[in-house]
Simulated assay, not measured.
Amino acid sequence: MDIEESVKNRIPWDGTLSLNDFTLSAATFSDKWKMFNPSFPPCLWTTCPKHHLGSSLKVEGYLSLENVCLVKSSEVEESNRSLTWKEESNLSEAEEPFDDATLVCPEYEVNHYDFHIIYSPSYKVPVLYFRSYHSDGQPLPFSEFEKDLPGHSAELRLESKWTFITQEEHPYLNRPWYKLHPCGTSEWMKLLLCRDTSLNKNFIEQYLVSWFSVVGQVVGLKTPLGMLDNIVSNNS
């Protein structure tokens, strides 16, 4: 089934995606992430054995963005900022203790984050799963990684019914991960993509970029304007 036929079969559109549509949109997201975020780790498609009943796909998978670093500086005015993997490497190389016998306290504390974008067969929308850990691999409790989140995140999670964080088993890794709960996602995606989708065959491909521009803010990941501008040009 091609995109245009998929759109026709879902008019009026309910804000959801099929698993096939998710896979298509994930490929677009991965390509654009690489193009507009060259200093960040790549957002890669991870292939997994077939997991969802009734799926027409021979293999399934999810998008994986890993080893994203959030740095907590000792300076108050720089208490919270993101750090890419390249910056972290440069930071480590720049640290030169003046005395090998002297224990030097690090200026920065680096926390690592893995983000997975996974399709929910129940809600028929993408879901953001994530985990956080120290440089030594020790997981961070929620009370600690909550401090890494941007200041407006707590306000968003309090005011919005679709931005609360829960913990449950990762659908493919069978380990506990945190996730941004998907309830309400289809409703606000309908509002976000409220244009005449019957005339726009690209909106399915652009779904994840639009979706991530909202949910990424909750965990401190911004969608580059170039990715969003590209959506506008495609829809014009």
Rank of each mutant, 00 (worst) to 15 (best):
E109K: 05
W33V: 06
D21T: 01
L70T: 06
H51Q: 07
L103I: 11
K124N: 07
E109P: 01
K86H: 09
Y108N: 12
A154T: 10
D136C: 05
A26E: 12
P49M: 15
A27G: 07
K58Q: 14
V59G: 04
P41V: 12
S73K: 05
T102A: 06
E146H: 03
N111Q: 10
P41H: 10
S92K: 10
D136S: 15
V76A: 08
N37K: 09
G151S: 13
S82Q: 15
R157Y: 11
L53H: 11
D100H: 06
S143P: 02
A94G: 07
T102I: 04
E155Y: 11
F130K: 01
S56K: 14
D148W: 02
W85R: 09
Y133A: 00
H112C: 00
N111I: 02
L24R: 08
S18F: 12
F40D: 06
E95R: 03
E78S: 03
L158W: 02
L19W: 12
N37T: 11
A154W: 01
F142H: 02
E109N: 11
A94D: 08
S122I: 13
F29V: 04
E109C: 03
D114P: 02
L44Y: 02
L83N: 05
P141F: 01
P106S: 08
V76K: 12
E107T: 04
P106M: 05
S132E: 00
L70W: 11
V68E: 01
G15H: 12
D148Q: 15
T47K: 12
V110E: 04
F40M: 11
T23Y: 12
F22T: 11
I118D: 08
D31E: 15
W33M: 07
S25R: 03
W45R: 04
D31I: 14
Y108A: 08
P106V: 03
E95M: 08
V68W: 00
V68Q: 00
E155V: 15
P106R: 07
I118F: 05
S89A: 09
T28I: 10
S39T: 14
E87I: 06
S120L: 14
E77S: 12
Q138K: 05
A101D: 13
D114T: 02
D148P: 01
R131V: 01
N37Y: 04
T16Q: 05
E75M: 07
S82E: 15
H112M: 00
S25Q: 04
S143T: 04
